[in-house]
Nucleic acid binder design. Structure first.
Length: 444
RNA sequence: GACCCUAUCGUCUAGAGGCCUAGGACACAUCCCUUUCACGGAUGCGACACGGGUUCGAAUCCCGUUAGGGUCGCCA
């Protein structure tokens, strides 16, 4: 096989769609597996929604997923590679040239209003798809597709073919929604005297309701995952599993291994429904697998992006807080809330800690005893604090929980949170005692 | 409506004629662990769409039906 050249050709719609992201991923995987080249072409012929911001969202999403490209459109509007420009909006002359050529050869004709139509061959259209197999389309009643509108702008099917030809694309890997149109593309290649690329149509991603995932569906945009603090490797791993499988019962699989094993024939033919639950679980697996440094850097960065300033906080304290919170959550989204009571002395008391715990008749007395005992505890470690608290409970003949709950509520204002003793250890004696004292002065 | 694709637990999938009383994962349920919430561990629930063939034998091959999805644009 000569050098593999694949392309991902998104149109700027304002978001990077999850289906598009998977198409990009499969193209990328194929290119990397065969040592080929990945090309990014921006299909921005629809001028209405073509804005620099919309294009930037595509770059951002691909970069975030770790999908790089060897050739094509670049951030800032640049082009990299010998077959550019890679923005269709900058290739109008080329399309005009090829339309004229088709017209001259009578393979296309002009309508009264100026639009140009391609003369469809009336022979059966045969598509040999690398995933779907050989399919034959009857074209006896197929209308001639428009390739240039009456206003002179070229139509998608035509520019797609011209660009794939000009850019020497060898394999077109795209969504199955294009399968029924592929014979038209092949006919255009042939009319232009070019060899068509090999086609591979991958199944669609359906929403939980079972229809094609649209931009309005929850989870449809890669931007959502960035914002919610999903880990890119987890999202990428999940996308790999939609229509492809390592076939050995593993779910968590490193990208280099996917590259090694990936090939087109093993891709499933049936559409797959999107399951946010499984992605969430998978993200948890990657969350746990992060090294301490990676996790700390991620947490700090995410919080800052969410407008939570952690700049002035002692690095060691910050790391301690991050560490005890980590095992309780699965993604960045939960970080701000879990971390809040550690950084903010004005933390809010949630309803449950207030109503159920702090208003209990014995709560006040227990917090007083806790204050006294913690004030003279000596070594401020989780183990020592646990011992101290349990001794208090034992002396009263009650379960540890009777002390744990008011303590947690008083110190963090929450009914749920990280392991209490570790939380106290991280917070430090001074802060804990101050908060307990303050709780006593409050009127619930 | 015409054409095309697809059809294994609720979901993602393993399965390419006997290894299948169909395996794994998510979700769900129960139990264990436990100060909460998670995590983890154990167990359970749960599928070959239906009908015909072919074959000694079919989840696997063929045909039909049904269902789902897609395409039929001077959208991409």
């Amino acid at each position: 096989m000569s050098e593999v050249r694949v392309r991902f050709a998104p149109s700027p719609t304002g978001l990077l769609h999850i289906g598009g992201a998977r198409t990009a991923l499969f193209n990328w995987l194929f290119a990397r597996h065969f040592g080929g080249r990945m090309i990014l072409r921006i299909e921005d012929t629809d001028t209405a929604r073509n804005t620099p911001e919309a294009v930037a969202i595509i770059f951002k999403g691909l970069r975030w997923l770790g999908l790089d490209w060897d050739e094509g459109a670049q951030e800032g509007g640049g082009n990299l590679g010998d077959y550019g420009p890679y923005y269709q909006s900058q290739r109008s002359e080329l399309y005009q040239k090829y339309a004229a050529r088709l017209l001259a050869a009578d393979q296309a004709y002009r309508e009264a209003d100026g639009a140009i139509r391609f003369r469809m061959p009336r022979t059966p259209g045969v598509v040999r798809d690398l995933i779907c197999g050989e399919i034959t389309f009857d074209r006896t009643t197929e209308p001639d597709p428009t390739i240039v509108r009456k206003d002179g702008t070229p139509v998608f099917h035509f520019v797609n073919v011209v660009d794939d030809m000009e850019m020497r694309v060898t394999h077109v890997i795209r969504g199955e929604d294009h399968l029924s149109n592929t014979h038209k593309h092949i006919a255009m290649f042939e009319a232009l005297g070019a060899l068509p690329p090999r086609y591979a149509h991958i199944p669609l991603i359906l929403n939980p309701g079972g229809s094609k995932m649209s931009k309005r569906d929850v989870g449809a945009s890669i931007g959502e995952y960035i914002e919610q603090g999903y880990l890119p490797a987890a999202v990428r791993n999940y996308l790999c599993l939609l229509g492809w499988s390592p076939k050995d019962n593993r779910e968590v699989i490193g990208i280099s291994e996917v590259i090694e094993k990936f090939d087109l024939p093993q891709i499933n033919r049936g559409n797959a429904r999107f399951d946010l639950n499984k992605l969430y679980w998978l993200n948890g697996e990657y969350w746990k697998a992060l090294t301490a440094d990676e996790y700390h850097a991620y947490a700090k960065n995410y919080l800052q992006q969410r407008g939570v300033s952690v700049g002035g906080i002692d690095a060691q304290y910050l790391a301690g807080v991050f560490d005890i919170v980590r095992e309780k959550i699965k993604l960045g989204r939960d970080l701000p809330d879990w971390v809040e009571p550690f950084f903010n002395e004005e933390f809010a008391y949630d309803e449950k800690s207030l109503m159920v715990t702090l208003r209990e008749p014995e709560a006040r007395a227990r917090i007083e005893k806790l204050s006294a005992a913690f004030g003279t505890v000596g070594e401020w470690t989780a183990a020592r604090l646990e011992e101290t608290l349990k001794a208090l409970a034992a002396a009263d003949g009650v379960k540890a929980g009777a002390y744990v709950h008011p303590c947690r509520a008083g110190v963090a204002g929450r009914a749920v949170g990280p392991s209490l003793y570790h939380m106290l250890e991280v917070m430090g004696q001074e802060r804990v005692l101050a908060r307990l004292r303050r709780t006593l002065t409050m009127n619930f």
